[in-house]
Amino acid sequence: MRAFDKVTAARSADRLTASDFIQALFGDSFFELHGDRCYADDKAVKAGIATIGNMPVTVIGLDKGKNTKERLEKNFGSAHPEGYRKALRLMKQAEKFRRPVLCFVDTSGAFCGIGAEERGQGQAIAENLMEMMTLKTPVLSIVIGEGGSGGALALAVANEVWMLENAVYSVISAEGCASILWKDPAKTADAAQCLRLTANDLFTMDVIERIIREPKSVESPLFDSLRNLIANTFEKYLAMSDEELLNNRYERFRKYGRTTKVFTFDEDESETEQK
């Protein structure tokens, strides 16, 4: 698939949402928690506590919703500041009990609106970035659909970041890039290609640790292997001292831009399709 086909797939309405992942991985063990304790409960962020085997984990997902009613309620997965503050509250709670944190990222971006700005969208995201960097418990983020810019990163300052094979993760939407740089929405597909937002390209740049095969339904057997993978990963990081754990996370992000290495990308896939 070409980059823009991946963008389309990542946004597809029949794609599994964060709610689906929570249902498939944790079933009835998930207990939902609400609210940021300051202003509201942002339904774009679904969060709570669940167990993998005997291990309690805090689960936080940017959730787009499955039908029109849910999508409106959840603002299509675009969180307001209270959504990010709710996420941070529950991450701090997880730290207190040294409970690993699992984040699902699926958003076109943090919401752009009057209320969002008035209540400090930028400040809320900034605080998450800062606090997540020193959260003394393992953090794993999985981009399951769209990873839209700062609004996605605010749940992805993690020890490891994984991506589904058709998910995308980008500094700006392909549409935004085409309209700002070229003032031409017709160039959206080109912009998607140039931004290097596919799982393969991000893996090449060392921005993600793993590419995950796409489960097509909640019943998919792929969820069993994913559950094991998550449990093993958390066990590995739980075995680390706080210092090791935090150094691991700091260095994970510190390396980007330490040198101005020029990346070369494997173009095979897109070239064959273009032919």
């Binding site: 970035l129 990163l153 300052v157 993760y169 500094v171 740049m205 921005v207 980007y256 831009g257």
Partner: peptide, 12 residues
């Protein structure tokens, strides 16, 4: 691209 976005986390 994404490497610019990563600077937000790195600087933070």
């Amino acid at each position: 691209g994404i490497l610019s976005l990563m600077q937000m986390a790195k600087t933070s």
